[in-house]
Amino acid sequence: MAKVPVQFTLNGAEKAEFIDSGTTLLNALRDKIGDTSPKGGCHQGTCGACSVIIDGELRLSCLTLAETCNGAAITTTSGLSEGGVLHPLQRAFLDAFATQCGFCTPGMIMAAKVLLDHTPSPSREDVVEALSGNICRCTGYEPIIQAVLTAARSNSQHAA
């Protein structure tokens, strides 16, 4: 099978790979580039565990072909903390007991980040809506919702 080149930035770093045409971004990130923070829970667009941010928008990497990402800026949860300091969302998930098995966590944090980037002071309903594409089988969601609301509050304090 002919390989196709792809080039994009991942968490600010330039990446270039030759991939099989038809490879999903999820598989390219995990198997080729070695960023395993996006998880594959269904490979069919139903669980949200593979969520990443492409050019500021939330995307399911299992339904995105890697070759469509040429020139894109991609963000994953592994790239959120800076210099060992946790992002406010990561801090809030940790403090609010919003992780159990942790498998949904990277996808949840991506969905929450896109929400807060667009809506810095979300209502509870906004949070529920933003996370509605992400399945968690462990926590019962409430601690996750609280974590996102807490992160939003701490962001606005930083901004003030």
Binding site: S37, T77, Q90, L94, G102
Partner: peptide, 12 residues
């Protein structure tokens, strides 16, 4: 704090 949370939230 849960001991496994720091690596969960950083995707590690």
């Amino acid at each position: 704090p849960r001991s496994d949370s720091p690596s969960h939230v950083t995707g590690k």
